[in-house]
Design a protein around this nucleic acid. Sequence first.
DNA 1: AGCACGCCGACT
DNA 2: GTCGGCGTGCTC
Length: 793
Amino acid sequence: MIASVIVDVPAKQIDRTFDYTVPASLQPVVQRGVRVIVPFGPRKIQGFILEIKHESSVKKLKPIEEVVDIEPVLNEELMSLSEWLTEQTLCYRISALQVMLPAAMKAKYHKLFFQLDHDIPDHIQSLFHTESPLSWKKADESGALKDLQELIKQRKVEMKYVVRQSMNVKKKRFVELTGTVTSGNIPGNARKQKQILEHLEAGEGKIAVADLKEIAQTTSAVIKTMIDKGYLKESFSEQYRDPFAERTFEKTDHFTLTPDQKKAITPIVEKVNQYEQQTFLLHGVTGSGKTEIYLQTIDQVLKQDRQAIMLVPEISLTPQMVQRFKGRFGDQVAVMHSGLSVGEKYDEWRKIHRGEVNVVVGARSAIFAPFKRLGVIIIDEEHETSYKQEDSPRYHARDVAIERSMRHGCPVILGSATPSLESFARAKKGNYQLLELEYRMNQQDLPEVKIIDMREELREGNRSMFSRDLLVEIEKRIERKEQIVLFLNRRGYSSFIMCRDCGTVMQCPHCEVSLTYHRYKESMKCHYCGFEEQVPNTCPECESEHIRYFGTGTQKVEEELFKLMPHVKTIRMDVDTTSKKGSHEKLLDAFGRGEADILLGTQMIAKGLDFPNITLVGVLSADTMLHLPDFRASEKTFQLLTQVSGRAGRHEKPGEVIIQTYTPEHFSIELAKTQNYEWFYQKEMMMRKTAQYPPFYFISLITLSHENVNKAAGVCNEIAEILKSRLSDQSIILGPVASPIARIQDKYRYQCMIKYKHEPELKLLLKKILDQYSDTGKDAVSINIDVQPYIMM
DNA sequence: AGCACGCCGACT
DNA sequence: GTCGGCGTGCTC
């Protein structure tokens, strides 16, 4: 028996199967989708069995060393989906397989030294005393590698390659009575032991060691003694790490659907019942009740003993969403989002894999949940860019969802108040079925939106980042004890450091970006490579001392706000204050309880957040992202403003929104005022048509990087020439041009964009180009291809 | 990607 | 003369 294996090495030359013989003892368990450990050159690595066969064209085969799984970790559907993913995103097969499993299942590789002989030098011997077997890392740190190498030659030391799973199943320890003694016949001075025995005799069977320690007020030492003496027997049972252990979820029931909602859900349920694929685009303003439609669709799916995947953008939405899902479906729900630890994610995955849950609510990667009977896939906030993975495999969850739904024969629901132009265009064309929710559920009017021209403010002498109107409105809310949300665009854009005399902006020495100022350490940091340096006292160019930071970071807004209104309490939410696990939720909870008047934050507060007392939303600078080199800039701005505005007045109290901008005449800002998606869509479609961008054209992006500018540009030019000669006249090849971020980590970046309508051979051609140019050699230009990029840099 | 094998300069 | 630099090529 022979197994074809894809091994865990993401490299061009290894991106194919390798054949191994299967020892008789392993034959019953090897099958497609099972992980194995195999010898590969001098080392051992993990791999996936792709195929079982009986012949191989290779003569000398090595045997499989070990089988990792009793059951396949990837079922037939996911195995074939990985093939599709490999072709679609031009990634390595191993990457496509790996991305479908939780990070915990990625193998870790170790090199260990084993001592075989006592006659070795003292300093090596002492190393073995501290650690045996001795890890490569430690040996290297102690500078002993050379000596060890010599000892290996003398056969006094041996080196082994070890493959380990990075995460293990969590086990809980239990003890029970063995019956060899009773509490009556142990020595009187063993008070604790007696107490423990009595307790166990009164109860029945096993008890968790942790509980026992609590009850008997004792330590594991006592319990260990009792185990050693044979009074107690220990056992282990597998345990799930439950991230929601301390929380109870109130059981909730269906809401009665409004006529509007009924009209929308009917065609979906129809498709569910018919086991048919159909992609729906559910378009409804914030508060129109999309979630209830999701919940009731899932309910229908569960009634048929089928399963559901629900994708949400990222952690921000999840606490409230999770609550709603757990409330409705109880422990049938697994949750997968970035806030969980690696171990927790692994456990949630195992619940799905074992068929213990039927619903998964999660971020992008949950699209690969190993369900066998999918009944519906839902993507909420479908326009969110976080559904596109930016590193290999560069997949879009929406594409994977549709592909899986075809294999399962089930509908996909894409939901959004501001659909991506691509999706809306497809819906208009009839590729997707458009479902509109026109009314807000509680008949609540949309908040009043006021646009403030900050140029006007400047002309009238207001140089602060708050317009006079905004300040007045903030004061009003404070008086009325209502709450305010202040929104600031992404952190990377803010707080650069500039010399006021010569205008020099502090730049990263390794990347073509300006450094960001971080107040708490008086330092400046690069967001691309992590470079960090103290803010200099004098300008490195002109030695002037007039160095200061510009832009508006959240920290700076907070300070300004404090200067203007020292009596106001603010909670700041940005990457700095929410990096710790659970802090996101904690801050939101605190704000919900009314512990602060103002919530100040970046992008991450734009979603979810639904507190009745928020009556004012301020957008400090609506246009910062309008000027990014990205054809989706207007779309993103409109989506963001619409979404942020939706945060105000979600309940009885009417809400107001103030948008500050330097370009009030821009259509995406004007139209966000009325939240008129349809108009925005028409207008933006016209722009896209003239500029020849999606949805009128598909785009692929090739990026070349190298330390030498000319080399990067040169190769980029070669590739552009190949493309020009091979593609049809209707396709447009832009470039080579320097990437918007011209240099990252000392490597210059050049790119070439392909815009096309119909190029059936393009994937093949790109694959060829990728093969031809992906040399891994020392001085090689590295190449990256994104088949449908979301970020143009 | 690792790792071994192999062929040329500065040290005991 | 050897140690060690990293170029080249292979991994079932």
